[in-house]
Computed example of a mutant assay.
Amino acid sequence: MKKIFTFLLLSAMIGTSQLAEAGSGDQTSPNARATQMVKQLAKKIQLSEGQYVKVRQLNLRLLNDVQAVKTQSAGDAAAIDQQLAELQSHYEWDLTAILGPRQMVAYNQSKADMMAMSVGK
């Protein structure tokens, strides 16, 4: 459940920052959101150009998968939670394959900081 909460929190924080920065309606497209997500991550950790492209593709796949889960399991909250947890697990596994050890430490620290901020509110 903690993983699900973390995943949803990260998604919500990214979505909130996107809405604040959105100048046009196109900012809500999966491509624009994937780009915004990778930009947010790049602010926290150093990404090479190759990593930037791979993480953006990974984010786009995640966004599409999340939308598919929400559409397919619309009435079943437990199924959505389980599938989102699986998606998060796969996302982090794939992210680990892209990022280096120091980058993963920075990513995990960023995630922990976001959790601490949300609990403190």
Rank of each mutant, 00 (worst) to 15 (best):
I80S: 00
G15V: 01
Y91R: 01
R102K: 12
A68Y: 07
A34T: 02
K70F: 15
K54G: 04
R61C: 03
Y107N: 03
A68F: 15
L63Q: 01
I14L: 11
D81P: 01
Q67T: 14
T16S: 11
A42S: 12
E49Y: 10
Q83E: 14
D65I: 03
S17Y: 11
M13P: 00
A12I: 07
V55N: 03
Q46R: 10
E86W: 11
K54Y: 09
R102D: 10
Y52L: 10
D94T: 14
N59D: 05
D65V: 07
A12D: 10
A34H: 02
A68G: 03
A77S: 15
A32T: 02
A77D: 09
A97W: 12
K44R: 13
A106I: 04
Y91M: 04
V55I: 13
L95C: 07
E49F: 10
G23I: 14
I4M: 09
D81G: 08
M114W: 14
K54T: 05
E86F: 12
M114P: 00
A42I: 03
S48R: 04
A68T: 13
S73A: 13
M104K: 05
E86G: 11
L41E: 00
T16F: 15
Q57C: 04
V53E: 10
L84P: 00
M104P: 01
A34D: 02
M104L: 15
G25H: 10
P101N: 05
V38R: 00
M13V: 05
E49R: 05
Q88E: 12
T96K: 11
Q46E: 11
T16E: 15
L99N: 00
T6M: 14
K70T: 05
S24C: 13
A106T: 05
M115H: 04
Q51D: 05
K111R: 12
A97N: 11
Q103M: 08
M117D: 15
Q67Y: 12
Q51A: 07
A116P: 00
Q18R: 10
R56G: 03
R102P: 00
F5R: 00
S24F: 07
V69S: 03
N59P: 00
L87P: 01
T35Y: 09
M114G: 04
G75H: 04
N31H: 13
G50Q: 08
G100S: 08
M13F: 12
D65Y: 07
S110C: 07
A22S: 12
G100N: 09
N64A: 09
D65S: 13
K39A: 14
A32P: 00
P30C: 14
G25I: 15
V38H: 02
D113H: 08
N59K: 03
V66Y: 04
L9G: 03
L19E: 06
Q67H: 14
V69Q: 02
L8H: 03
M13Y: 06
D94N: 15
S29E: 06
A97M: 14
S110Y: 11
K70I: 14
M37R: 02
P30A: 15
Q103H: 08
L63M: 05
I98N: 03
L95K: 02
D94K: 12
P30F: 11
R56D: 05
Q57A: 15
D81Y: 09
T35I: 08
A116R: 06
G15C: 02
Q88I: 06
G25A: 14
M117T: 13
A106D: 07
L84D: 00
L47H: 01
A77M: 13
Q109M: 09
M117P: 00
L41Q: 01
G23K: 12
G25S: 09
Q88R: 09
Q109I: 15
Q36C: 06
S73Y: 15
